[in-house]
Design a protein around this nucleic acid. Structure first.
Length: 876
RNA sequence: GCGGGCGUGGCGAAACUGGUAGACGCAAGAGACUUAAAAUCUCUCGGCCUUUGGCUGUGCGGGUUCGAUCCCCGCCGCCCGCACCA
């Protein structure tokens, strides 16, 4: 009876090959069944997968396999987010061409993913650096350009003067380039922008429809979009105080109610007026320069003092032309929000108050809390920015802030300054247009041509794709496209004159903003097959890390809208369900302290327990190593576990099962050797129980028991089926795991009985039914093991193609219920009674219990609360 | 500073969002089998006590309720976003 141990090294490749041969996971767009699109965020091809990938893809795979079994036509594709800087870094460091480096990495990562046994449709695979993909992105760009969704404008970039390159914000560390260490400059370059702000309101409003997204992510996007309702207010400049031609300043405010508390205007160092005046005034020029430099370093904005410089310009108060206020350039006013100019109301805004105190400007309280006293209310070092009642505000006195807002808004709208209203209500957004220009080689070329006569001309679609040239060098700094001898030179599509290509490439976030749409018909000669895209989108379940909560997801939402406007798809929201999974974390180990601290990899140590305390020792020489905190797996702390090693020693099923168990999927899961061994024990145990009994189950038909000693077996199997089904629907993988453990525990003895040949036919039929259910329940998580068990059981067919089992109602509903009986809220007894017993019967039965009588000790109950099928509480 | 989340055994966590707190797993302990070890199996496992029982216990302090891990108020501690947004 003894059977072989389950050997994943043999079984896993074997089943992967069979799935592959039978094309089980290839999806037909014309399949009439209900569609289900499950997608995990595609990986950057760094070369190796990590445990985070394993967890992410294991979750997606469970959903895909489960939905497939439930009868859906499942689309579960995979691809590569393959453009980006690491490939250029590799080229610079090792002289490998970015393309060669990238495609090699893809090949090795693909092999790793295949070893995981994921149910992916590999026939739809593509990399974003494939010309076959990015040519369509260029097509979309041209369409967006025609539709007015793309434009060029001057914009600041971080410029590294040594490497001659533009740096991303995260490449600037303490104001210096990460590679060169040179002080980073702010340069103005003409760059391409997507008009995401055209959709600000819609992107905000539609968040409410995304009810299968985490609340947290929706809130983060809401804050990022940052809608505010206020007014644009025009202030007349006192003649003669400003350079000629300047007659007014427009500020944006959300608090027009506090206008009578104004004591100055402040404009950004980049405001046109500031620039104009700085040109003639060295002191102001110097101050503006200082502001710009401070803006580059992320450090200590919090502690940055509020500083400014008086421009000498005076403005007239919009509600009282005789009232003149000074205009400052201030370091805390941002050019790219609102109008780049504000009015300062020190009593109602902390920054304005700090500023006013520094420059001895008036502080007039204009709003006090509703319960305040107008005679004594004053503002010291803390501004009052809440709602309340107006004071010191002439005709607004006594009104609420909301009323005052409306009165001022109406009045300013009706007042004219010049020929325009003095003010208008305005909704403002924090969201800015998406700058997509990157001065780099390894990205999708922006398909436009610059002609001296015709200006910016899009590359005609017939001339697409604009392919990246392959013969490029990385031996000198800067963008290789810029210095390529021939690639830039091209005839203008309009006039035929010599012209030059745009050498900027697109932000890689563009690539990932529509890959999920391309997966729906990756073979298509145009960007999308609209019918296929409309059929599959939105993605039913998207799974990935929380780090993409804002940018990637917001850009994708914008891009889908832009593609809709250009006729490439007819949905607005790309992702119906979103799930953000937690990280895989691990204990850290180190020796030494301070500067000489050295991290040690988990593979190099062994853990022992002594006197209830865990201690770590180096494998090589038994030196004791200190055990540190649990942190995200990272190379620098060496607390990484290589999925390859785990798959090689335990198999993919164990790795998959472990990352899904224990922790709720949205929370971090702690990787531990002991935990993996537990998961591995489970796979072996399941195999042993099933394989030992298999021989004695071959000749019976799986049939649930209706009575007798096998009834309990069928009941727990069918109850577990019902529960796990629900767990999978909700992505509660850890709960599913727990219930599956319970079922295995419950089936252990019956399976042993069968194996020992001590079971009747009916009993065996029930055990077989329960075992088949068990195997199907674990199949989404440990698919290879499940196939192996299924085959051993002789149940026939490939498990990956089997429909999901159905539970029998009669087996999941009990006739009797066990009710806890409480006395004064404390549990004292249990009562087993018929499910449909009425309240009186339940009360009487409860009072008749020995334990109850004993505790009551003759006292009469004051009240008896019977919650049907839940609990009985007797109050005395 | 603003916004959001989370605090349950030695550990990861469950508990049908008001109804038996600690399912399931890990770790630990005891036992069985074995020449021995591994594997496997059985049992114990929040704390305290006078142990066939009792008291207490979900970060701390209050409240609502027949009944609170869950709802309300006030603290404490961690974590994560955004960060001068006018």
């Amino acid at each position: 009876m003894a059977t072989e141990r389950y050997n994943p090294r043999d079984a896993e490749p074997r089943w992967q090959q069979k799935w592959n041969e039978e094309r089980v996971f290839e999806t037909d767009n014309n399949d009439p069944r209900d569609k289900y699109y499950v997608l995990e965020m595609f990986p950057y091809p760094s070369g190796r997968i990590h445990m985070g990938h394993v967890r992410n893809y294991a979750m997606g795979d469970v959903v895909a396999r489960y939905k497939r079994a439930r009868g859906c036509n499942v689309l579960h594709p995979m691809g590569w987010d393959a453009f980006g800087m690491p490939a250029e870094n590799a080229a610079m460091e090792r002289g490998v061409h970015p393309a060669a480096w990238t495609y090699q990495n893809i090949a090795s990562m693909k092999a790793q993913l295949k070893a995981m046994g994921l149910s992916l449709d590999w026939s739809r695979e593509f990399a974003t650096c494939d010309v076959a993909y990015y040519q369509h992105q260029q097509h979309l760009f041209v369409d967006f350009l025609e539709k007015g969704l793309v434009y060029r404008k001057q914009s600041k970039v971080n410029w590294d003067p040594v490497d001659n390159t533009v740096l991303a914000n995260e490449q600037v560390i303490d104001g210096r380039g990460w590679r060169s260490g040179a002080l980073v400059e702010q340069r103005e370059l003409t760059q391409w922008f997507f008009k995401i702000t055209d959709f600000s309101q819609d992107l905000l409003d539609a968040l409410d429809t995304l009810d299968q997204w985490p609340e947290k992510v929706r809130l983060m996007q809401k804050n990022w979009i940052g809608r505010s309702e206020g007014m644009a207010v025009r202030w007349a400049i006192v003649p003669g105080t400003a350079p000629s031609g300047e007659s007014e300043v427009t500020v944006y405010t959300t608090r027009p109610d506090t206008l009578f508390g104004a004591s100055f205007l402040a404009i950004s160092a980049d405001h046109p007026l500031a620039r104009e005046i700085a040109a003639k005034n060295p002191a102001i020029e110097a101050f503006c320069e200082e502001c710009r430099r401070a803006g580059t370093s992320l450090a200590a904005l919090e502690t940055a003092e509020k500083k400014g410089i008086d421009t000498g310009i005076k403005v007239q108060h919009p509600l009282d032309p005789t009232w003149e206020l000074p205009v400052y350039v201030a370091n805390f006013v941002l050019m790219d929000y609102g109008t780049g100019a504000i009015f300062g109301c020190p009593s109602g805004d902390q920054r304005d108050l700090d500023f006013a105190r520094r420059y001895n400007l008036p502080v007039v309280p204009v709003v006090m809390p509703t319960d305040g006293d107008a005679d004594t209310f004053s503002v010291g070092d803390v501004a009052y920015d809440g709602d309340g009642v107006m004071i010191n505000s002439r005709f607004l006195d006594g009104k609420t802030t909301t009323e005052a807002f409306d009165i001022v808004a109406d009045r300013l709208t009706a007042t004219a300054l010049g020929n325009q209203p003095q003010g208008e209500r305005k909704v403002n957004f924090r969201l800015r247009d998406w700058g997509i220009s990157r001065q780099r080689y390894w990205g999708c070329p922006i398909p436009v041509i610059h002609c001296e006569d015709c200006g910016v001309v899009p590359v005609p679609k017939k001339d697409l794709p604009v392919k990246l040239p392959e013969d490029v060098t990385f031996d000198q700094p800067g963008n290789p496209l810029d210095r390529h001898p021939t690639w830039r030179h091209v005839a203008c599509p309009h006039c035929g004159k010599d012209a030059r290509r745009e050498t900027d490439t697109m932000d890689t976030f563009v690539d990932s903003s529509w890959y999920f749409t391309r997966f729906t018909a990756p073979w298509e000669q145009v960007p999308t097959d609209v019918r296929a895209a409309n059929h599959w989108l939105p993605v039913d379940q998207y799974i990935g890390g929380i780090e993409h909560a804002i940018l990637h997801l917001l850009y994708s939402r914008f891009f889908t809208r832009a593609m809709r406007e250009t006729g490439h798809v007819d949905v607005k929201e790309p992702f119906k369900g979103l799930f953000t999974q937690g990280m895989v974390v691990h204990e850290t180990y180190s020796r030494g302290a301070g500067m000489s601290r050295e991290w040690v990899a988990p593979a190099d140590i062994r853990i022992e327990e002594q006197d209830g305390k865990r201690r770590a020792y180096l494998l090589s020489n038994s030196e004791e190593i200190s055990i540190g905190s649990i942190e995200k797996m990272s190379k620098s702390k060496k607390n990484v576990v290589d999925p390859d090693d785990i798959i090689a020693s335990y198999g993919a099923d164990t790795a998959r099962f472990f990352v899904l168990s224990d922790s709720p999927p949205e929370r971090d899961v702690i990787w531990s050797e002991a935990g993996v061994e537990g998961a591995h024990r489970f796979t072996q145990r399941l195999w042993r129980l099933v394989s030992e009994a298999a021989e004695n189950l071959g000749d019976v038909q799986a049939t649930p028991a209706k009575e007798g000693d096998a009834l309990a077996i069928s009941q727990i199997a069918h109850k577990t089926l019902k529960a796990v089904q629900n767990d999978y629907d909700k992505l509660w993988f850890n709960k599913a795991v727990a219930r599956i453990y319970e079922l295995v525990n419950a089936l252990a003895a019956p399976l042993s009985n069968v194996a020992a040949g001590k079971a009747s036919d009916d009993y065996r039929a029930a055990v077989k039914d329960a075992t088949e259910i068990l195997i199907q329940l674990v199949a989404p998580m440990t698919p290879h093991l499940a196939e192996e068990c299924w085959a051993t059981l002789g149940s026939g067919g490939m498990l990956a193609k089997q429909p999901w089992p159905t539970f029998e109602d009669s087996l999941v509903t009990e006739n009797d219920v066990v009710l806890p009986v409480q006395i004064n809220g404390k549990k004292r007894a249990e009562l087993t009674i018929s499910r449909d017993a009425d309240q009186n019967a339940v009360s009487e039965a409860a009072l008749a219990l020995d334990e109850v009588k004993k505790v009551l000790n003759g006292q009469a109950p004051k009240k008896i609360i019977v919650v049907p099928q839940r609990i009985v509480n007797i109050v005395v």
